[in-house]
């Protein structure tokens, strides 16, 4: 590991300061600030309508914040304000350095082209022009997300919900991104499939040293995957800290309510 990389690991990858998104008079999210370090997994939890997804979209340049700034450290080590970059640079980030895993795989996949092409798309978008190499990489990635090799030429339409979600993850990780945004990646999956997906995600995140911002309303997902947690309510971050600390010893009354409302089987 070179000196440069060691240095940049001590510095935040993403710096969010006072990010606010207003929908007219209504608050989407307000004055959210945090730093995200390389290799760190941050969970954003809260009830439906608390502003989790709004915040995520603001960070992922899918929604322009009303005020505040979001800075990202690129591979050259420069801190750049996302909303002062050109659209071309932002879109380039989205398909190289970043990934976005949607709750519904159909939003993140091209449903009309084969699984192999779905995984290969990002490679072709950054200039890969050798069919054999693209296919080999796609095969490798399908294996890593536990999709059988002989399904490479099938459309995602022929896949189950769990397989689609794994395909979406492979499609995002193929360009070795540094930061992945996930919006309820386990939503809509049954419990056993969820468990396998979480296991897979945890392995990949650790192996690749990814930084992840994951939005979930499922505290079990947050506990299993994340290092740190932000609890949101009515657009505000009401509590934040290490995941185990917050979930084991919640300070805010709302967080206490949230933790105590988990069903114990």
């Amino acid at each position: 590991m070179s000196l440069d990389i060691q240095n940049s690991e001590d510095l935040p990858l993403l710096q969010v300061s006072n990010t606010t998104k207003l929908y007219g008079g209504r608050i989407g999210c307000k004055d959210v600030s945090f730093d995200l370090y390389p290799g760190e997994v941050l969970a954003i939890v809260g009830e439906s309508g608390s502003g989790k997804t709004t915040l995520l979209n603001c960070l992922a340049t899918r929604l322009t914040p009303t005020s505040g700034s979001v800075n990202y450290r690129n591979r050259m080590g420069q801190m750049r304000n996302l909303y002062e970059m050109s659209e071309a640079e932002r879109r380039m980030l989205m398909r190289t350095d970043w990934g976005f895993v949607h709750q519904h795989p159909a939003d993140g996949l091209r449903m009309t082209v084969s699984a192999g092409a779905n995984v290969g798309e990002r490679l072709m978008a950054v200039g890969a022009r050798h069919y054999g190499n693209i296919r080999d990489t796609a095969t490798d990635w399908l294996g890593r997300v536990e999709i059988a090799e002989d399904r490479i030429d099938d459309d995602p339409r022929a896949f189950s919900g769990g397989m689609r979600q794994r395909l979406q993850i492979a499609r995002n990780l193929v360009t070795a991104p540094r930061l992945v945004f996930m919006d309820e990646p386990t939503g809509g999956l049954d419990v056993s499939v969820q468990a396998r997906l979480l296991d897979l995600l945890r392995g990949l995140v650790a192996d690749l040293g990814l930084s992840v911002i994951i939005v979930t309303h499922d505290l079990a997902v947050a506990r299993l995957l994340s290092h740190r947690i932000l609890v949101m309510r009515h657009g505000h971050v009401i509590e934040s800290g290490l995941t185990d600390q917050v979930l084991d010893d919640p300070q805010e009354s709302y967080t206490q309510l949230l933790v105590s409302s988990i069903l114990q089987p």
Binding site: S114, A117, G120, E121, A125, Y131, I152
Partner: peptide
């Protein structure tokens, strides 16, 4: 923005099929 990766996705599909 000269984002033409998608065009090769079409050609990829041809070869795969």
């Amino acid at each position: 923005l000269e984002e033409y990766g998608l065009m090769h996705v079409k050609l990829y599909e041809d070869i795969a099929k």
